[in-house]
């Protein structure tokens, strides 16, 4: 009886239904908590790109108090009725640059002046997707900090883009040169001093291709944000005159 085909088919069907049911139940009941974790991670990364977070900092509180988030289009105009939480950067990346919806996170001080602007970036490394945030200072030109993450770069080589050591190198570099977008690029080869060059950072030995991926990602996304950055840089200049 236990060897008959009917029994085997019914048995496997029953196992499938029971296991499937249990998994569906677990997935549905744990979803809100998981989504909250992902949202928290996002906030943490945004804040970490502009300031050094200490253990025990209330991330939600700082975020809600200081960060104003909205969505813009390629022309730098605010898209009404969209919240950054609804924009999936990975999906926008597949569109043509001009059609992308671009979330922007402005870190404001107590008098509501923009201190830093944080832009999500997305691209392709050597093996898989890479993404992160680029934060610029209130001149909308100088890099305050970057935060990169990856899905499948080689550990010890390309995966180093996730380390602070690499991300530190971007601090203080500039995106624009005489009003035109140059972006910041990772050089080939490691151990060279690029402190005199405003648009180059030291490379990662053995991870030139991941570095190229990062360069393309930055160029691609900073071009999307170019109009927004220029617009804001103009207003701050006027304000300071």
């Amino acid at each position: 009886m236990r060897q008959s085909n009917t029994y085997i088919i019914l048995y496997s069907a029953a196992i499938t239904v029971v296991c499937g049911g249990l998994l569906a139940f677990a997935a549905v009941s744990l979803k809100p908590q998981q989504d909250a974790n992902i949202a928290m991670e996002q906030k943490k990364n945004i804040l970490a790109s502009v300031l050094t977070l200490k253990e025990g900092d209330n991330i939600t509180e700082i975020y809600n108090k200081q960060v104003k988030a909205f969505v813009i289009d390629y022309e730098g105009n605010v898209v009404e009725g969209m919240t950054p939480e609804k924009v999936i950067v990975a999906a926008e990346y597949k569109k043509a640059p001009k059609d992308r919806l671009l979330p922007i996170y402005e870190f404001r001080n107590d008098s509501n002046k923009v201190e830093y602007a944080v832009m999500p970036v997305y691209g392709y490394g050597l093996w898989n997707n890479i993404w992160g945030f680029v934060a610029v200072k209130s001149d909308f030109n100088t890099v305050q900090g970057v935060k990169f993450q990856h899905a499948g770069e080689t550990p010890g080589l390309g995966a180093r883009i996730e380390s602070e050591e690499i991300q530190e190198r971007f601090k203080g570099k500039s995106i624009f040169e005489n009003g035109s977008l140059v972006s910041v690029t990772i050089a080939k080869g490691e151990g060279n001093d690029y402190s005199a060059n405003q648009h180059k950072v030291d490379g990662m030995s053995g991870a030139t291709l991941t570095g190229k991926g990062v360069n393309n990602m930055l160029k691609d996304y900073l071009a999307c944000y170019e109009k927004y950055l220029k617009k804001n840089a103009g207003t701050t200049k006027q304000a300071s005159l």
Binding site: Q3, Y11, C19, L22, L23, A26
Partner: peptide, 24 residues
């Protein structure tokens, strides 16, 4: 109750069930 001809599949299904639970 497990039919011996599909026992590995049944085992895998049970193991996957618990692994995904733990992961979630």
């Amino acid at each position: 109750t497990i039919p011996s001809r599909i026992r590995i599949i049944v085992q895998l299904a049970i193991v996957s069930l618990w692994v995904i639970m733990v992961d979630q």
